[in-house]
């Protein structure tokens, strides 16, 4: 399976009005801290060796914390370079809520998890389905609607998305 390039992914994200930052693994926590507008909630990342434990976010929040949060931080085990898409997985850590309630969604994706295009991403999805991981939201940019007479971002989902791409250890 080929991997998509970080540059391509970032270009796609910028077309979606979505900011992105590429960092080394040891810069993750400080980057998250910079990007978070408090109060913030998070879902622990699904990656070995990368954690939000030291970041200024409440993991496993209460319903009221979740409702008040301005930022939600979660991980994505796949990104689509050609589209700027990330995958929000339905996990017990509550990724779906973290990615949905707060106005700002900060997503962490590893560079090595980038796929070239939708077709490549479907290869990944099929493999995940085989492994019995079968609930994902492929999210592309902020939520939006044209139903109120003009295009508006930030409807039931986030108004703003920021993607942190964690580069591989060299």
């Amino acid at each position: 399976m080929s991997t998509g390039s970080v540059e391509k992914f970032q270009q796609s994200l910028s077309r979606l009005d979505t900011a992105s930052t590429a960092v080394a693994p040891d810069e993750l926590v400080s980057t998250v801290a910079d990007l978070v507008e408090p109060p913030a909630v998070g879902a622990e990342l699904p990656f070995d060796g990368l954690s939000l434990a030291d970041a200024p976010v409440t993991l496993d929040p209460s319903p009221s914390r979740l409702s008040e949060a301005v930022t939600g931080v979660s991980g994505s085990r796949m990104g689509i370079a050609s589209l700027g898409t990330v995958a929000v997985e339905s996990r017990a850590e509550g990724d779906e809520f973290i990615a949905l309630y707060p106005e700002r969604h900060v997503v962490v994706v590893r560079a090595s998890d980038l796929r070239t295009d939708l077709s490549d991403a479907f290869g990944w999805l099929r493999a995940e389905f085989e492994e019995d991981r079968q609930s994902f939201i492929l999210a592309t940019g902020p939520s939006s609607t044209g139903d109120m007479g003009a295009l508006v971002q930030g409807v039931h989902g986030p108004e703003e998305v920021h993607v942190i791409i964690v580069r591989d250890n060299e």
């Binding site: 339905s90 017990a92 609930s135 989902g157």
Partner: peptide
């Protein structure tokens, strides 16, 4: 691609929210 393409295989692992115990 749509903003959200949801692939859901319910019941999903996302925990249920209990708003009665809001804290």
């Amino acid at each position: 691609i749509p903003q959200y393409l949801s692939l859901l295989t319910p019941p999903v692992d996302t925990p249920a929210i209990d708003f009665d115990s809001s804290d």
